[in-house]
Design a protein around this nucleic acid. Structure first.
Lengths: 333, 333
DNA sequence: CCTGATGTGTGTATCGATTTACATTTAACT
DNA sequence: AGTTAAATGTAAATCGATACACACATCAGG
């Protein structure tokens, strides 16, 4: 690979002149500029980004830490992050993979070890709190998405899960549904708890019956919700509406209900949370009503906030909250 | 952020000693080693990876170029790449996003501009050939996955699409199916063409009828295949088996068939290609029979090949071919 | 007592870029 | 003609790490 010195040598000028040409600065005669540009072109020369970042103390790279890249739930978030980063002239370095905490802390060490200007961490799993705290302590330029750790003085992007869950439940109640249950998503995540709380609050406010049968505990995937709902339909009283803490388990609920011969949404109305399945509208399931989480916008906002913070390192931490939006499709009108 | 000089100053030693401690080298007295380690710990010091990479001419980072990160098809590939990279002590830098060619060539410039040791490019879209050629010309350390460009002297990871398609078709024929059709995936991709060729060859070898009605042209998604199949079932002769060039369009085919009242696999057997839907077995569709493409293993192999190439820069290019495996589920026994 | 090996430490060049300070030439204006 | 300003160029410091060459002390064996 050619270096700036190679170019300078070939052009019979100093490195300084080449650097000025590269960065479109004044102080180069037209002839020299032309000659240098030609030689750059000939050699397909591209400045070494490491050297540049080292001297400028600026990498134009944002590190992103998340549980798992391989989950369709993250598509919109990733797209939002990528688009915003690109439009600001930043690259993104993804670090993911569900590893033990020691490994994940090493990721943070790596990302804060010079190769990024700032870090965005996504997640609300309680197990990750240690990670977030470590990150916040190490890097002044960091943004948490979904995690509302009060002892981390970083910028935060949040979703109002409580309000979203309240809205969904309220909608079911106002529809005249009488036997409403909630299938939770993973309770190891703050979002799971918040959504459950929103459901309970709405039920209480409207004086709806709330018993031990009103809540089924599941996780972020389809299977357990399916099994729980199957068991419930076999034994318990039949619900006529179900608010589910996420979309994937909502599909599990739908599957159990349909296999049990229930008509959707006649016998059972279902509202999910997230709007995470890009293809769901095309699938054989009835299109799922859900609380749309604006993950794309949240990703964008995370990047904006981070870049703003890097430019105003002295400003107070900002918390930006988003609202989920009720999207009515076939499973609940 | 503390630097090696800060540590050296605090410990009253030279930078060299600190560097030796960092890299576990000899030449440091036990007392000094202990003192330096303590100071490193106190300061949460982590060596700047840019500086290190610059002087060592080694980044331990692999660049990955692909169309689109946000597609469940790539999950296994990404997982394979990540796992293999991690086990070899490498990081992965993803560059994706379907942009115009100029932007994508800039990605390559960026990745070859010092921040990676080598590059893996995924894809077989004919439009990307320019990109692959550019990459092969710029970097001696590159691996192409899925693309079999004869004029690129890089390592290659390939799937025998022809043979896979042949196998799938042959299976349908041997089952006694008489009216077999093929729904292609996107013909702008080499894999689309190769799978079509495999289908045609099998049909001819077994003297099966092959007319203009035998092939429906679709793409990599569900919608067009659904529409094509719908139209076909409304007008043409009814097929009793269908080999589809990818899984997503296979779901479109299934949907059209089920809506038309066909029983699966009784009236219509369906075999897809890729085995890309991690959740498909849990969905309401009958689990899809398919030609499993070992994407995880292919990703791993790509990383291994790249690292091997970096250690033996003089060796001849290697081409490694994988076979697809027939996985029989509900849509075809 | 001298030689050589070993252990421990320091100084300096290096990677590839940018940037500052300064030198030189050219042009311009009194 | 003489002074000044503008334009153009170069040399050297810098970023943060590694590694090579070398200095010095200690200790063993002849």
């Amino acid at each position: 690979m050619a270096t700036i010195s190679d170019i300078a040598r070939q052009a019979n000028v100093s490195r300084t002149l080449v650097s000025r040409v590269l960065n479109n600065k004044a102080g180069v005669s037209p002839e020299n500029r032309k000659k240098i540009l030609e030689i750059i072109e000939e050699n397909h020369y591209v400045p070494n980004s490491l050297a540049k970042s080292l001297v400028l103390q600026k990498t134009n790279t944002i590190g992103v830490v998340m549980d798992d890249l391989c989950n369709s739930f993250f598509f919109k978030l990733i797209a939002g992050l990528q688009d915003a980063a690109e439009s600001h002239g930043y690259n993104i370095l993804f670090c993911s993979g569900q590893k033990d905490m020691a490994t994940r802390l090493k990721y943070v060490d790596y990302l804060t070890g010079g190769c990024t200007d700032g870090i965005i961490a996504y997640g609300s799993c309680f197990d990750d709190n240690e990670l977030f705290r470590y990150l916040a302590a190490k890097s002044a330029n960091s943004v948490l998405i979904e995690s509302n750790l009060s002892d981390c003085a970083t910028d935060k992007i949040l979703l109002d899960n409580f309000h979203g869950a309240y809205t969904a439940t309220e909608h079911l109640i106002r529809q005249g549904r009488r036997h409403i249950i909630h299938v939770t998503c993973d309770m190891n995540y703050a979002v799971g708890l918040e959504r459950l709380n929103g459901f309970v609050q709405a039920m209480r406010d409207y004086k709806m019956p709330l018993g031990p049968d009103s809540i089924l505990y599941a996780d972020h995937f389809e299977k357990i919700a399916y099994q729980q709902m199957q068991k419930r339909l076999a034994h318990g009283t039949r619900p006529d509406a179900c608010f589910v803490g996420a979309d994937k388990p909502a599909f599990g609920v739908l599957r159990a209900a349909m296999e049990a011969g229930l008509s959707i949404p006649g016998d059972l109305a279902v509202i999910g949370f997230d709007d995470d399945e890009p293809d769901s509208k095309d699938m054989l399931f009835p299109p799922l009503s859900t609380m749309r989480q604006p993950l794309y916008e949240m990703g964008q906002a995370g990047v904006s906030l981070l870049i703003d913070k890097m430019n105003h390192s002295d400003r107070e931490p900002v918390v930006k909250s988003f609202d989920a939006e009720l999207v009515l499709r076939e499973t609940c009108k």
